[in-house]
Write a protein that binds this DNA or RNA. Sequence first.
DNA 1: CCATTCAGTGAGTGTATACTCACTCACATG
DNA 2: CATGTGAGTGAGTATACACTCACTGAATGG
Lengths: 184, 184
Amino acid sequence: MNITKLSTADIRRETVVASAITMFARSGYLGTSVAGIAEHAGISQAYVFKLFPSKELLFVTALEACFELVLAALERGAATSPDHSPDAMLFAMGGAYAELIGDRSLLMLQVHAQSAASVPEIGAALRKGLRATTLLAKSRSNASDEAVQRFIAYGQLCHLIVVTGLDHNPPDWADLITAGIRHP
Amino acid sequence: MNITKLSTADIRRETVVASAITMFARSGYLGTSVAGIAEHAGISQAYVFKLFPSKELLFVTALEACFELVLAALERGAATSPDHSPDAMLFAMGGAYAELIGDRSLLMLQVHAQSAASVPEIGAALRKGLRATTLLAKSRSNASDEAVQRFIAYGQLCHLIVVTGLDHNPPDWADLITAGIRHP
DNA sequence: CCATTCAGTGAGTGTATACTCACTCACATG
DNA sequence: CATGTGAGTGAGTATACACTCACTGAATGG
């Protein structure tokens, strides 16, 4: 039982955002139709437009929800780290992130968001999420700037590995770039 | 005068590929219309379809040309490195890459290709390009696997920096992840 | 019992776009 | 001149999709 009572429209909005994450992650911003999201959520397409003013804002909302989950996972990882040294903290946060993106949706949504970043609102949401992620990694780990930078860089490498499918059926050359990287 | 004589259709194909790189880099695979590419190339849309069987194959051709240029740049960087130590070789190759993507087209095309990688032919071309890039970096530098992996990871970080516009008007927090990264 | 509000939809509209086809025109060659 | 070839196009077709609007039915409350 929540302290804030949600109207049924607000509840609907949440299920639609969940469907949007799934569908946008599957086919990208332009490749996903609002009708498809509506069908996945089990409502009519017209009602999606009652709940969100535009496809663009629905994508932004989904991306923001995605970063909320990422930040929560990093926080969780940091909180459960057995050792408080900067390296151990970043390692624990990386492990929590790898676990989070096990179903690939949150990862793919970020990849598609990078491709759609020229849409101003999407670019802004992406910057905001990256900023929060970076600052959280820095503040919770107390690591050096270089270590935080490396943390983000290897996160991007993880994205590349998943996008190219190198984790699922790795060819012989793949372990050159997948070795030691924790991915789903 | 070339040793291989090109028919005018082959020449046209090359100019169309150049236009395709520019336009696809600007708006992505789904966001770019063949009509727009045709206009940029100064020919009719119908003729583009005479030169290439489909939009998909045009994108793949553009992506392959992109990787050709990347590989050539890495080769050039390696060739002009003053020092033959693995670290110096990778550093020189990274510098050449940073210089190559000065106009952002080749970088953005790779980002959009990652977003479109679920199209089988595009995913395959992406894997092929990544494979060639990785193996070239390894063989020309003689660096350790870890160093090559880091080379690729920081390349992806460079892509992220450009996509989010952190290089053009960096906010205060940006140098946490842009420090020391050579980007256009 | 009437009035208001709110969740939810069916049936559109306008537009963009991948791809096709019948055609023209310039030119080279016998 | 006749004819064949290859570059190049105008005008389509078919479809998908973002977004709109007039509407329904049910609950709520005075």
